[in-house]
Design a protein around this nucleic acid. Sequence first.
DNA 1: CTAGGGTTAG
Length: 597
Amino acid sequence: MVAVERLVFLLDYCRSPRYLRQVLAQAVASGLRRDGHLSPKVVAAFFESGHPEDARRWFDGVVFPNTVLWNVMFKGYTLGGAHGNTLALFARMRGRGVSPNRYTFTFVLKSCAKIPATRTGTAVHGVVVKAGFEENWFVGTLLIDVYSAVSEGGDIGSARKVFDGMPFRNVVAWTAMVSAYVSACDVVSGRRLFDSVSHQADLVLWNTMVSGYIEAGNMDAARELFDKMPERDIMAWNTILHGYANGVDFEACLRFFNEMPQRNIFSWNGLFGGYVRHELFTEALCAFNSMLKASDIKPNDATLVMVLSACSKVGAIYLGRWIHIYAANNGFMENLYVVNGLIDMYAKCGSIRNAIELFNMTKTKDIITWNIIIGGLAMHGQGSEALNLFEEMKVKGVAPDGVTFVRILFACSHMGLVQRGFAYFRSMINYYSITPWIEHYGCVVDLLSRAGMLDEALNFIKKMPIEADCVIWSTLLGACRIYGDIHLAEFAVKQLVRLQPEDAANYVTLSNIYGATGSWKHFARAKQLMKEWNVEKSPGCSLIEINYVVTEFRSSDVRHPQTMEIYKVLDELTALTRSVSHYTGIEGLCSTEDGNS
DNA sequence: CTAGGGTTAG
């Protein structure tokens, strides 16, 4: 007995993983594995220190787990997101005839809500009734969540039935029901219920109703309700802020952010998210900078992910590296969101070597990690490495998704691997049961076009089950230019003009094709068309980061204060390039017309 | 061993 008490004490006070192992070594040595009091503590400690496998091993060693031990297993799995494990284990508990208690259903029902299968939900509901916990407040609230989450829009009728059947309903139950209505796209019923209890509503219920309007896309109603709130906490302010950030009126987001009485990291993240969503990447980075300077609010994982995404968009690799160091020093390298963001940042900022390095160092990878590195390699012209990693990922049991195949097909088309590309395209449909997106069709068109199989490409476009978009016609047009097929080019331009008559790029490309083939009369005609139809080609631009400053530049740009120096260096470099004749390419065919590369 | 509200990657 003394030994058990000592162990329980140690488990309660010494939760560091290293200590835990020592304590457990003692426990095993003392033959205490079956102790009904100790085992739940041990298993809970394993889960809390992030070792679910150890928890499971211990649990499996217990011959007759008591209800508390089963419950601790459910809690560990559910809180760790392993909902399938919770449900599988619950089925086993039933099979073994162990009685649930009033704590059992909280985590089992939570997992049911996360795996929205009507069958399991109703089955567990049946167990609840049989075990006599139907009138339990906690269970009732959770059952509403379960029915509201059930596949295909939720079973709002069953949710309401549970709600009406509850002997007592408190503000938590109302909130669950209101949010069930909202996720069933019925804000009106949600509002009706809200109004009937609004005199007893608390901050959570108010906020649920406000965000319900935001989810329904009704920002005005959300704001109106927010203004009516008897009191507002920072979460309420942040809810509206996020609504504005994701909406069309981004100015309102900025105004609201400035008006807020207090801000936390979620407020700043809402601002960053708004900037990124509206493609104001440099502004996002400036805002991040001012957060670091003007407040003592620290970034969290979501902050880093969004800022990294902005870095990748403008090529801000210095800031990206700074975030890498910050992440490493603040324990964020355990977070796959952050690591994925870093890998993508390196790849998009041109440092594929750093991307690969980090990829190789990352032990737990998900489909997104694989997609990032495969896409990054393909973009950097390392298509065969991309394909190798694709094969490796499949061997490791990671199933590719639609995004993977877009990148794989991209790699194939850039390497001229027509047959292999088609084989992948077929395996995507037949083996992985992925219905092709327009992007996949576009890649196949690119695959054929780049290989010069223009007729086949046109044939493919005609046979596609969905109508070709302007991306696909542009792809074909680009290939027509390379292979000098004026006839097909004119056809493609016709389609493009039909789809987007105001886009100048179409006319530019056509005029360039005429120009390249010496049809100067047609060239002039295309230019004239542009003038007549008042289409203006906005100049393409590039971005470069030097000493933490990202600068935009265009062809023949003279906006920079150091323009003279820059052109001097550029001329020297050009001269140097010409002096070394290493390139015997097809410049005339491959040069870009807008410097947007 | 128990219930309700917030942001994030390809």
